[in-house]
Write a protein that binds this DNA or RNA. Sequence first.
DNA 1: GCTATAATTGCACGATTGTGCAAATATGCA
DNA 2: TGCATATTTGCACAATCGTGCAATTATAGC
Lengths: 105, 105
Amino acid sequence: MNAAETQKTADFLKALGEFNRLSLVYELCRCESSQNAMCLCDCCSVDASVVSRHLKVLADRDIVMFDKVGREKTYRLNRNKVATQLRELADLIENEDCKRGHHDV
Amino acid sequence: MNAAETQKTADFLKALGEFNRLSLVYELCRCESSQNAMCLCDCCSVDASVVSRHLKVLADRDIVMFDKVGREKTYRLNRNKVATQLRELADLIENEDCKRGHHDV
DNA sequence: GCTATAATTGCACGATTGTGCAAATATGCA
DNA sequence: TGCATATTTGCACAATCGTGCAATTATAGC
C-alpha cells in the first residue's frame, strides 16, 4: 500500500466520517430518486451554504453524483462505487494474504 | 438511522480517515502477530507520542486491541470487527430495502 | 535501590475544518 | 426586462485536530 493510495482511501473515509455529511449520505440512501439540495437541507439543520459545501466534498470523491436540471441540482448516491470501496477495504483488512510471511516465503 | 448511531459510525470512519492512523492499520494488517508501539513507529515518521495517541484513538473505537506485556503494549488489528462494520455500511448503502417507498407500502 | 527503556501526558502551536451570514451568480418565469 | 428561487462563494470565526518536545509514569533488569 503506497502513500498515495493510503491518502486517497483516508480521504474517502474522512469524507464519510463527518456527522452532517454522513447524514446526507443516509438521506440519499433512503431516496429512490434524485433529490435537490434544498430538499436535502431538511435532514441536517445547517445553512444551505453548508449543505452545498458538504455535497461538493461528497461529489469530488464520487460518493454522490448530480444532474443539473435548470437551476436545481439533483443528487443521488453512487451506491455501487461507495459500497465497493468499503468492501474492498473490508476484504483487505480481513484477508490473510496481506499478512507478511505469506508473501515473504 | 438515529443521530446517535450516525455519530458513532461517523466517528469510526473518521478514526480510519486520517493518513497516519490508516497507515498504522495497514501496518498491523500485514502483521501475523501483535506488534508493539515502538515497532509501529517505523511505519509513520512521527514522534512516538503521536503514535501513542493515534493508537489510543483506534483502541477506543475497537479498531485495534492490545495486550500489556511487561512495559510494552502489543497491538493487533481487530480484523473481524472492522471488516464487519465496513460491510454493514456497504450493505446499508447498497440495499434496496432502505429506500423509502418500499417501507411505506 | 538505580538505571534504561516503553509509553503516556501536559503544553503550546499551526493547520485544517465546519459553520453562518451576506453577497454574488445562475437560471426559470412572468 | 425584472423578479424570484437555487446554489455557490467570500469572509470571518470558533472549534477541532495533528504534531513535537519535555516531563512524567510504569516496569524490567542489574
